[in-house]
Design a protein around this nucleic acid. Sequence first.
DNA 1: CATGAATGAGACTTCATTCAT
DNA 2: CATGAATGAAGTCTCATTCAT
Lengths: 215, 215, 215, 215
Amino acid sequence: MKTRDRIIMAALELFNERGESNVTTNHIAAHLGISPGNLYYHFRNKEEIIHSIFDEYASDLRIRFQPQAEFDATAESLLQYLDAVFMLMWRYRFFYANLPDILRRDEGLQGKYMAAQENLHQNMMALMESFKQGGLLDLDDKELLSLTNTLKLVASSWICYQTTQAPGAKITKAVIYQGVLQVLSIVRPLTTDKGRERVLQLETHYMDQERQDIA
Amino acid sequence: MKTRDRIIMAALELFNERGESNVTTNHIAAHLGISPGNLYYHFRNKEEIIHSIFDEYASDLRIRFQPQAEFDATAESLLQYLDAVFMLMWRYRFFYANLPDILRRDEGLQGKYMAAQENLHQNMMALMESFKQGGLLDLDDKELLSLTNTLKLVASSWICYQTTQAPGAKITKAVIYQGVLQVLSIVRPLTTDKGRERVLQLETHYMDQERQDIA
Amino acid sequence: MKTRDRIIMAALELFNERGESNVTTNHIAAHLGISPGNLYYHFRNKEEIIHSIFDEYASDLRIRFQPQAEFDATAESLLQYLDAVFMLMWRYRFFYANLPDILRRDEGLQGKYMAAQENLHQNMMALMESFKQGGLLDLDDKELLSLTNTLKLVASSWICYQTTQAPGAKITKAVIYQGVLQVLSIVRPLTTDKGRERVLQLETHYMDQERQDIA
Amino acid sequence: MKTRDRIIMAALELFNERGESNVTTNHIAAHLGISPGNLYYHFRNKEEIIHSIFDEYASDLRIRFQPQAEFDATAESLLQYLDAVFMLMWRYRFFYANLPDILRRDEGLQGKYMAAQENLHQNMMALMESFKQGGLLDLDDKELLSLTNTLKLVASSWICYQTTQAPGAKITKAVIYQGVLQVLSIVRPLTTDKGRERVLQLETHYMDQERQDIA
DNA sequence: CATGAATGAGACTTCATTCAT
DNA sequence: CATGAATGAAGTCTCATTCAT
């Protein structure tokens, strides 16, 4: 792997572990066994590293949530969606934990972030709409918007929130699965009979996963 | 006002404005026009200032959410609850935005925080239960727990989430009212007819407030 | 007791315990339960406190080692001398441990100290001379000077030296008695038969004391 | 010379001149014309600088006092010993002057120091024993132990003691030579005829040296 | 590409001392 | 006599960043 990519990976790993502001560029270099000078050969500054991480994140986000050409709401496909969301949340969790600070001092990133969020919002809305059209959800347009917003908020806050609820505790997969279940519990009251059935399938799946992870 | 209290106020103000880690003890002192030595006369270190702010927060939290002796779910009383929640979120918003970092480096605060959260959870559960008993909510025990958790998460993440959605933008009262409305939208699908009516009253109230604030 | 004297006492106690440079004027005031302002009412600055302690020390030193009008070298009287020396060393031990630093920054104290040392030297020389005249010591004038210097050095360095040999350990009376025995071991090779007998008496006495203290 | 070594040298020089506690890391950096940051690039903190100096000292101490395989008490070899002792005392004199304070706040150094002292004591005892076996000293085992302790104390206290006797005055070589002579005067009463002769030779040597230095 | 020594601004904190009350 | 809030210089240490090699 190229040094540049190794730096991004190491930074992401350390940021997630200790929080962005507690990781110095020297930490990252030392972690990789390279010199600080070398790090600065590949990146003009710390900000640029964060930008690169963000670019990966935004790219992941775009790919995963591309609206499907044809509607497809099999349990299988829903699982993939949910797994993808929380995988993203997990992979870039430092970002969610430090977002206000990071964005405050980097106007360039603010722009990128807003664009990514806007794109995500559109895709999420399209997805929810397709669920509604597919007869899984029973709600009006206003409710659909509210639901989308709630889901976005809950998904993106989940890991950070759990971190604070049990400080020091490692975030395990079980915590992630609980996040999915929490999301499902929000959706359930708004489902049709068909949708509810689908939710139950998913709940069963994630409760099994959770049980396996704890064991 | 006593210098000690002025320091707490200034710190809270600056923390909220710029993020805790971006505010130095020198900033706080300069903001008040006092010497750094004076600040350290009143507080042993920055940590102690944060503890003092937290103590105020925890005290507010405890008082506001004391379970009522008699059940009382008039629109009036619900309004007070909702206002209180979001007032707290707003007053101590830096805390929510920087919680992982703050707790990570202060084990003492972790303990206090966990205790406060536990207390809050009990009170919230009691409140939701009383809504159920009062015929406002229609849900089983598991759903009640899920709802409580969602509400806690949404309420405590709302301001931080909004900050990131529109970075640089000041958080106005309108944003707060939208938070309340978001919370109501989560509750609504689980209400009885009587409960739905109450929710509608509240929605009307906060939509009016929002309109006024924007104007 | 007057506040002024209590300050001197507290300062001496804390200096001995923690070293002069590790004791702040605030420590002293807090230890007495008085305000820093009050301390500075009684003393212009920290230096003045040290001066006052030194004045007590110098006065003690002068009184204890006043040459006796009539020669008197009974074991009883020798005991008093030795006890007095080491009591002084003990009472003002911080002084010996921090002397270079203290004198370096206080020229006024340097003068006082030199005068006290000069006076002590004269008295010690007179004392040793009287031991020689009294037929206790067998040595020429050059040896007498050397012995005097050695004794002064050993006595004044003893406690500080022991502190470093067992850092953290409390200096007990047993350590003091060992110091006396060390001094006696230096004198013994230079005694007459009569003198040696006297030394043996003293050694017996201090070995008993040491044993008692340890038990 | 490497910056790291220059820092150690400068620190040693300044510590000796002004006392360890009166020399800040900024002083050291300024003295070398480097930035404070650079100093902290080479040493994690002031303590580590002191440790490095101590390590050099302990290494010197160990090498110089390694017991000789074959007994060798020519005046030449004795001279080397005495010179070595006082060279050490002189080179690391700040250490002796500030030992109680330095050890008090650095437990790690305490351990190292105790080990070095124990090693020194063993070597000194072996040396004195070899003098006794070589027919230079005439004393019993208890006296030999006392003598060893006295010599260690006098040698290690000499420079500090002299500093206080003439504060402000520079410690010259002459002062060092007087220290050697003082040590010899302690040994002399315990020598055999052969030993006394050797002591006289050494005294003559150091009195010549002293005279030369003063001139 | 890579090294690693070097920079310097600035963070947190301490403490002898002052002064209005 | 006494209080205690206040000062400000200075000390230790950190870290993003630069640059000669």
